[in-house]
């Protein structure tokens, strides 16, 4: 597989997949808004794939960072007359700064403690929003956030804009994993001592990555609030964080497209499941099964290697040279 192919496969899959679903949307218009939901989850899940799948740092606060971004933008727009074009900057910067500040002390913790700490961070955010009085709209939440700039409310354009952002994130993520920085982050996951001996400033690099993940979640929150025009403490939060982690782990935390696949599966599965009570049962069972079969999720490195072998021309040639295998291939056709 050439370098270029490594870098552009994932973005190409996104573009093709998006176009297909949007075209199917001509027959079933709600697919356009469903694509919005998938894109939203994908945007929150992708950076978690980066910090968890590549960096080995779990976070159960992605939903809350998205809420933080959404609220920041909603408050600025409804109370201080900002336009969404301008408020997108604080919507990204605010969660990123919060994440960066808290990252250093907590990112040393082992995985389980880190999951719990980030989860309780979500609770802190939720309680803060509920108790924020008129400023945060308390339990009722905030309504009246203006629609997205330029694209307004049209479901097709909204979904297209969101997916353009998802595409940019996927392109950047693909390039990142095949860079010195990406290898540094990967080294942190494998072994922090290894990373340090490769000149990596582990606490700083992890904090930056954690902040970037939070910032992108904040951007997703901005899309959320300016599309729905409403945000409440229970819109995005601890349950979203848990679902996002599910998407990443199920789809494949090591693969760039894992979180996107997880988000797609999760959203469509929602339509075919009867009630919220059975969700835990269904998703729990699926997760256990997948992780037993493939601990790194559906798009695991092992699965990718098998796929690559199947499609790689060089491999086919070398197989053909081996008489035994060539016969088997012929026979199986």
């Amino acid at each position: 597989m050439s370098n270029e192919a490594k870098l552009w496969t994932a973005p190409a899959v996104i573009v093709v997949g998006f176009c297909i679903v949007m075209l199917l949307g001509i027959a079933q218009p709600s697919l356009h808004t469903t694509m919005f939901t998938i894109g939203l989850y994908a945007l929150i899940a992708l950076p978690l794939g980066l910090i968890y799948g590549q960096g080995g740092t779990i976070s159960m606060a992605q939903g809350s960072f998205a809420a933080l971004g959404a609220y920041t933008s909603a408050i600025l727009c409804t109370r201080f007359g900002f336009s969404p074009t301008l408020s997108v900057i604080p919507a990204v910067v605010m969660p990123a700064c919060v994440a960066f500040l808290i990252a250093r002390p907590i990112l040393r913790l082992p995985e389980l403690s880190l999951a719990l700490v980030t989860l309780s961070l979500g609770t802190v955010v939720a309680v803060g929003l509920q108790r924020g009085g008129d400023f945060t709209g308390s339990f009722v939440g905030l309504s009246g956030a203006p629609p997205l700039p330029l694209v307004g409310n049209h479901p097709v354009w909204v979904a297209t804009t969101l997916w353009a952002v998802v595409l940019i994130v996927v392109i950047m993520y693909s390039h990142f994993v095949h860079s010195a920085r990406g290898r540094s982050l990967n080294a942190i996951r494998v072994d922090r001592l290894l990373a340090e001996s490769m000149g990596v400033n582990v606490p700083f690099d992890l904090s930056i990555m954690f902040a970037i993940a939070a910032g992108i979640a904040g951007l997703a929150g901005w899309f959320y609030v300016h599309t729905l025009g409403y945000i409440a403490p229970d819109s995005l939060g601890a349950h979203t964080s848990a679902n996002i982690l599910f998407m990443v782990v199920l789809g494949g935390r090591r693969a760039v497209l894992g979180p996107v696949l997880g988000a797609t599966f999760f959203t469509f599965a929602n339509d075919f499941l009867p009630g919220a009570e059975t969700h835990g049962l269904f998703f729990g069972t699926i997760l256990v099964l997948i992780l037993l079969l493939s601990p790194d999720g559906i798009l695991s490195p092992q699965a990718m290697r098998v796929l690559r072998r199947l499609f790689s021309r060089r491999d086919r040639v070398s197989r053909a040279r081996l008489p035994g295998t060539a016969e088997v291939t012929e026979a199986s056709r």
Binding site: N3, L7, H175, A180, R181, R183, S184, N186, A187, M198
Partner: peptide
Amino acid sequence: MLGFNPRLRQSIVSACLPFSKARRTED
């Protein structure tokens, strides 16, 4: 390739972008 990292000063932005300096370094 991980071994080259201590000698590199690569920014995250460069690492993420197509057609950047990091791309040429990568080859």
